[in-house]
């Protein structure tokens, strides 16, 4: 369970090393780097992402399999599922973005033996979303079609997610969007937020209610504009496939990507986001979708 803790570098290795260290120290306040060792489970050359199953990364995240962006597309091309790699996880200056650098293959003997997960078929903007039934924080059944006529911003979380860059960030930013939309009654009445859990076994209505209230600052009336819901495993798989959500549970820890989808008032997909988004972009897109007709969007 243990690995070496970070050590302060006391060895003087010459002026060149010093200059490199100085350059690194200048960057200390901007980005952070964490060593990673793991196995490539899947790759996506379209998004330059690889899914890596890795051990604990102290200070960043516990052991799990999760997707990472790699800046150099040639590296993604070269890597194959089954490859053992060593790399550095770089956490961006605002800590909301991360990627892999200095990726090295340490063992390629198992190359091709790993079974890649099936690539999800995502809906395209303009396609109609499936009308799944969900159980919300009050134990009431709701359908995606209940929000017809409104711009519906949907995301996926699990309440026990310990990684601040994932579910806590999503819910925090949805809370900001909720608060901001509330300032304009017209926007508020024409929009809705929906957070769907992909951990239905643990995230019961009572758990989701407690979770939601924490982000609504205890204001129960906020549930009229922001639902927290879960669904049965079958419908969850349908929604996940439609919205590009990937999740995998292992030892009560769920590896997942981020998926945010904006559903237009006519029940079709308006836009998707995964890693590259800001809360203002989500909010402005939602406001825009609420006031734009399908006819306008077709122009």
């Amino acid at each position: 369970m243990h690995s070496e803790k970070p050590q302060c570098p006391f060895n003087v290795v010459g002026a060149i090393g010093l200059v490199l260290l100085l350059a690194a120290s200048v960057g200390c306040n901007r980005t952070k780097k964490y060593p990673l060792q793991g196995e490539v489970v899947a790759k996506n050359t379209a998004t330059n992402e690889i899914t890596v199953k890795h051990g604990d990364i102290p200070g960043f995240m516990p052991a799990m399999a999760m997707p990472y962006r790699v800046k150099d597309p040639a590296v993604v091309q070269e890597l194959q599922p089954g490859d053992k790699i060593a790399a550095e996880v770089v956490l961006g200056k605002d800590q909301s973005d991360y990627w892999l650098e200095d990726v090295r293959i340490t063992d390629e003997s198992a190359r091709g033996q790993a079974k890649p997960p099936a690539a999800p078929h995502m809906l395209m903007p303009g396609e109609r979303v499936p009308d799944v039934a969900l159980i919300n924080q009050d134990g009431r059944t709701i359908h995606l079609s209940d929000f017809a006529g409104k711009a519906l911003l949907v995301t996926f979380i699990y309440t026990r997610c310990p990684m601040p860059n994932f579910c806590p960030r999503l819910s925090s930013q949805f809370a900001r969007i909720h608060d901001e939309l509330k300032r304009n009654p017209e926007d508020y009445s024409k929009t809705h937020l929906l957070t769907i859990s992909f951990d239905p076994k643990y995230d019961t209505p009572a758990v989701l209610r407690k979770y939601g209230l924490a982000y609504l600052d205890g204001d129960q009336s906020g549930f009229s504009h922001w639902d927290f819901a879960s669904t049965n495993p079958g419908d969850l798989a349908r929604v996940a496939q439609a919205f590009g959500l990937q999740y995998e549970e292992e030892d009560n820890q769920i590896s997942h990507n981020m998926s945010i989808v904006l559903i237009a008032p006519d029940g079709t997909v308006a836009k998707f986001w995964s890693t590259d988004w800001t809360w203002t972009e989500l909010m402005e897109s939602t406001q825009h979708a609420a006031h734009v007709t399908a006819q306008d969007r077709g122009k």
Binding site: P58, G59, P62, S96, P164, P168
Partner: peptide, 22 residues
């Protein structure tokens, strides 16, 4: 052992919290 658990599960939020958390 507790230090390891703290570094792995707690430090990311409690040592250097992201400013944009709720």
């Amino acid at each position: 052992e507790g230090q390891w658990l703290y570094d792995t599960h707690c430090a990311e939020c409690h040592e250097n919290p992201q400013p944009d958390l709720h």
